[in-house]
Design a protein around this nucleic acid. Structure first.
Lengths: 204, 204
DNA sequence: TTTCGACTGTTTTACTTGATGGGTCGAAAT
DNA sequence: ATTTCGACCCATCAAGTAAAACAGTCGAAA
């Protein structure tokens, strides 16, 4: 094993430990000492691998985002219709956000912890999502599935609808985590909204 | 002028004064003394007309809601298509929320002031909005404008999409008030989303 | 019937203080 | 040379507290 791989693995172990803690208690309620304890190191050692606590958290989120990214890429490669791809995209996305909510990243209460701090992280990923949607829409236009006179920002509006539906539900959330029932009804709502959207842009 | 009208007018004057204050400073930053001062009365006198501060604020909101209600009712009476009515509904609704945002009722920061306190007030009005949408959709179904196999909750999903788009924008708002630019792009977004929705439920 | 001055008891605020926890550094271990 | 850590620093936060501000009351006056 190369030196480089050794470091990567150590980092990965730390990220896993951090992920567990953050998922349970949220960013601000977790101390570096605790995470260090979990991986049986001194706190100072963590700072050998991650320059700040924020960076560690960022890495946790980044890992999750990459997970989703991979899943979405798989969808694109399938040979199904653009409509089906869009539906599957929405489903994967929901699964992803269920994790993020448990990570305490999205709830109203941890919102103030995070705001500007991770805004960039999320807006970068929004770009990624947007490109996926655009790709699917272009595909749909190419094979005459969708109307050809769609503007550039159809994808953006669709993304905003999805974001909005989630945001709306989160707003009335008391604790950190959405209960199973609410999550399910949100899922259903997104699915139906997606159906309407697809119908709305479908070639006549 | 009857005694009753006299009271109504006094109340109205107080509500107007309160509205101004609340719009500028938000619920918790306004004192009853200040409002009393504005209408040149003692604070105790306000309590002759309104049992609590909350009730006064409630009245302010209620007045705005009734304004919107009247406007929407006018829309229903027009003899335009259901699609056009839905678009106009969205437009009126936007105008209304611009006022509410200025009233500090909707911003993330005043959210904690208000939460459960006015939840009922808003969920009651949601019922009203929902009925308008349902009526429009039924009308569209009746004259073969919209698909006849729409379920009961198409209206609900549409309302949630609108709520979501607004909610999403509000989330990243710093101060109390949305700037003009953001408001305008939100308006455009809602308009386009409505178009897609209408297209999505339109009879094929 | 309507207004208000003078009160009351609770809630906020402003301030203090002690502890917590993010981050550093130089030395020790490997 | 790379990795670990004990000991330390200092900004931030939590708990406690005392004083002020405020919602709401009451009895009397207009």
């Amino acid at each position: 094993m190369s030196q480089d791989d050794y470091i990567k693995e150590k980092e990965s172990i730390i990220i896993q430990a951090a992920r567990k803690r953050f998922a349970h208690y949220g960013f601000s309620k977790v101390t570096m000492d605790e995470i260090a304890g979990d991986v049986e190191m001194g706190k100072a050692s963590l700072y050998y691998y991650f320059p700040t606590k924020e960076d560690l958290f960022r890495s946790v989120i980044l890992q999750e985002q990459n997970e989703l990214k991979k899943n979405i890429e798989l969808i694109l490669e399938e040979h199904s219709s653009a409509s089906e791809k869009l539906q599957e995209f929405v489903e994967q996305r929901m699964k992803f956000f269920k994790v993020l909510i448990n990570l305490g990243t999205l709830s109203v209460h941890s919102y103030f912890d995070i705001k500007s701090l991770f805004k960039k992280l999320f807006s970068d990923f929004e770009e990624v999502e947007l490109n996926f949607i655009k790709k699917i829409i272009d595909e749909g236009k190419a094979n005459n599935e969708f109307s050809s006179d769609l503007t550039e920002d159809s994808a953006l509006i669709f993304l905003h609808i999805l974001q909005g539906l989630r945001c709306r539900v989160l707003r009335w959330t008391k604790g950190q985590n959405l209960d199973e029932e609410t999550h399910e009804s949100l899922q259903k709502e997104m699915k139906t909204a997606t159906e309407y959207f697809i119908n709305g842009i479908r070639k006549k």
